[in-house]
């Protein structure tokens, strides 16, 4: 399931839902991304997330389909928020359910790594020095690249 929304989500309820009624699920793995209050040396008072409606959902769907093709997942969920968020707020939930932990762990990491480099979201941080668009990080590109098939 994929959701792109302004509203917060209840991570616990989503994890419960992921395995509900499916006794083949032996493990659920989750990643929750939060807004930090620091960006390097700068303190961040708020973050605004923008996205490309339409392409965002398509890109997330493609990433989920890729994960399902690579790992034996019983289910997975991706929820990503947009709009203005404060430090400590939840940004994203990625969770996977599988019979065994390895598939759940790996698919979860794959989903967030590819999401970060492929899904059309952009972060703008409000700092004491003014607002600035967050730049993409080479470390994120490297994290995503290790899942490229050779």
């Amino acid at each position: 399931m994929i959701r792109v929304q302004a509203d917060d989500f209840d991570a616990g309820a989503e994890l419960e839902h992921l395995a509900a009624g499916n006794r083949r699920v032996g493990g659920v793995c989750a990643f929750v991304g939060l807004v930090r209050d620091m960006a390097g040396e700068r303190s961040v008072s708020a973050m605004t997330l923008e996205h490309y409606p339409g392409m965002t959902e398509k890109a997330l769907q493609a990433i989920v389909e890729e994960a399902r093709a690579r790992w034996p997942l019983e289910d997975c969920v991706v929820i990503h928020r947009y709009g203005r968020l404060a430090p400590g707020d939840r940004i994203v939930l990625v969770a996977t359910a599988s019979a065994h932990r390895q598939a759940a762990f790996e698919a979860c990491q794959f989903l967030i790594d590819w999401l970060k480099t492929k899904a059309p979201f952009w972060k703008k941080e409000d700092t004491a020095a003014g607002a600035r668009w967050v730049e993409a990080r080479a470390t994120d590109d490297r994290a995503a690249a290790r899942w490229e098939t050779r």
Binding site: L49, Y52, H80, F121, W122, W133, E135
Partner: peptide, 10 residues
């Protein structure tokens, strides 16, 4: 056609 910077979600 859409133009945008490298993405920074997640």
């Amino acid at each position: 056609v859409a133009f945008f910077p490298p993405v920074t979600g997640g």
